[in-house]
């Protein structure tokens, strides 16, 4: 650059490399800013590398050790990896927990969010609800699990698990999925609230202004508009549910198989009984666990990873579809 700032027109650039576009140069940046930018780049790349390493490592290990038979055969007692069967009960267990947990967390969470955003009265009650949800979000899952044992071993709730001579066992799919739902609830509430809050006030009023009630507006306008965020909340919640270990260890049982309650009708016998999940299986099969079958731990972890990636892809799809509908200008 020439030293003069304003007056002379800039000299014509050399023919060889005519710039097609003027860009902001970092030459004017201070050293701190430049270092900061470099640091951000470094961190970004570092985290990409870590994530890629985990996925690739699990992918390789998973493909190496995962056999389809493992998804269809239950775990069995045995001394070698060959004799000890697969982890079908854990796989199905995770599916059951996911379905049960989210089908409790989603409707309740959406209802709470609608009440908080659209009604929120009396104020004091709304504030307390908000604080409670935040508190639940902050409670470690092992504490929730412990709390769950207190609830589900009470005689009144004996019908949700196995009871023996008046002693309630307290471990069952019902018990575990309820506490898992509680764990997922804050995610659903937060995401739904965000979705509802993003809808401008005048859109609600436009619906009221053609004689619609609050209920009709919520059902036909607000909830459909917030669908992507509700879906995100559901996916996040589901991810939390299938990824949790503490609640499953404490409230579902340490066995690697289903143990249905005798005498109960079909689905209930399994749901009232103890069981396992993929996370529990990975924990037990890892080198430090009781089973010590690291190859199967990798295989199960790989399945878990695939499920989480599928969830992310599904969330993405919902958002992409929502973008086709468009949004208000501000």
């Amino acid at each position: 650059m020439e030293s003069s700032v304003v007056t002379p027109p800039p000299p014509a650039p050399p023919e060889s490399k005519v710039p097609t576009k003027a860009v902001e140069g970092s030459a004017t940046w201070s050293l701190v800013d430049r270092l900061g930018l470099a640091f951000c780049w470094f961190l970004g790349l570092l985290f990409c590398a870590i994530a890629a390493a985990i996925v690739i490592y699990l992918l390789i290990q998973g493909i190496k050790f995962l056999k389809l038979s493992e998804l269809t055969t239950p775990a069995a007692a045995g001394f070698t990896e060959g004799e000890s069967g697969g982890f079908s009960d854990a796989f199905v267990g995770t599916l059951i927990l996911g379905v049960m947990g989210i089908s409790m967390a989603l409707p309740i969470g959406v209802a709470i969010a609608v009440w908080l955003v659209e009604y929120g009265r009396p104020r004091a009650l709304a504030r307390i609800t908000e604080m409670t949800i935040e508190a639940i979000a902050g409670i470690p899952s092992i504490v929730l699990a412990l709390f769950g044992t207190v609830i589900f071993t009470s005689t009144a709730l004996g019908f949700l698990s196995r009871s023996n001579e008046g002693v309630v066992f307290g471990r069952s799919f019902f018990a575990a999925s309820s506490m898992l739902a509680l764990e997922a609830l804050p995610l659903v509430v937060a995401s739904t609230r965000e979705g509802l809050n993003a809808i401008p006030r005048h859109v609600r009023e436009a619906s009221y202004a053609v004689g619609k009630t609050k209920a009709a507006t919520t059902r036909r306008i607000l909830l459909p508009t917030a669908r992507p965020q509700i879906a995100t909340g559901g996916m996040l919640g589901l991810g939390r549910i299938i990824g949790d270990t503490a609640i499953i260890v404490v409230l579902l049982g340490a066995t690697q198989n289903f143990s249905p309650v005798e005498g109960a009708p079909f689905p209930l016998d399994y749901l009232r009984g103890a069981g396992t999940s993929l996370t529990n299986f990975v924990y037990e099969a890892s080198p430090t666990g009781n089973l010590n079958q690291p190859q199967k731990a990798y295989a199960a972890a790989f399945v878990l990873l695939l499920m989480v990636l599928a969830l992310n892809a599904a969330t993405d799809l919902v958002h992409r579809r929502a973008r086709k509908v468009g949004t208000w200008s501000h």
Binding site: H202, G211, T213, V325, W328, S329, H330
Partner: peptide
């Protein structure tokens, strides 16, 4: 109110069609 608001309807400053 819902009857009144069907007899007296309103258009707002920002265009706000419903997302459908």
């Amino acid at each position: 109110p819902t009857l009144l608001r069907r007899r007296v309807t309103m258009v707002f400053q920002q265009p706000n069609p419903f997302p459908m």
